[in-house]
């Protein structure tokens, strides 16, 4: 699976969390739109983390919009994975990849 089936989201807008919306797109690309309260310090790290996490799941053709309120790495990762799983038909989850 290198595409997601539909758009989905996960997370909240609250402090120390991230709200992540994902959408399938036409191009073979991982498109990231990040708005973060810690953009200055960690913006690039968060982008790397998101790209890596998406690649690990073998996904491309995806647009990712993130509202980050200072979430820790594993929170962002968990929210992103949740969104991706929600965007796919349930039976295709490969747990060993998570």
């Amino acid at each position: 699976m290198n595409k997601i089936d539909k758009s989905a989201y996960a997370g909240t807008l609250e402090s120390s969390d991230a709200f992540i919306q994902i959408e399938p797109i036409e191009q073979d690309e991982i498109k990231i739109e990040l708005h973060s309260s810690v953009e200055e310090m960690y913006g690039d790290d968060i982008r790397d983390l998101i790209t890596k996490c998406v690649q690990e799941l073998g996904i491309s053709y995806i647009s990712i919009k993130v509202q980050d309120k200072g979430a820790l790495d594993y929170v962002i990762k968990a929210r992103l994975q949740a969104a991706i799983l929600r965007a796919n038909k349930k039976d295709t989850i490969e747990w060993e990849k998570l």
Binding site: S7, Y9, T12, L13, E14, S15, F19, Q21, K69
Partner: peptide, 21 residues
């Protein structure tokens, strides 16, 4: 106190559940 963020999260959840993005 950041209450508005929770209100917004709830509203967005309702909208999403209705298919409104």
């Amino acid at each position: 106190e950041g209450l508005i963020l929770s209100v917004m999260t709830n509203l967005i959840n309702i909208a999403y559940s209705k298919g409104i993005k």
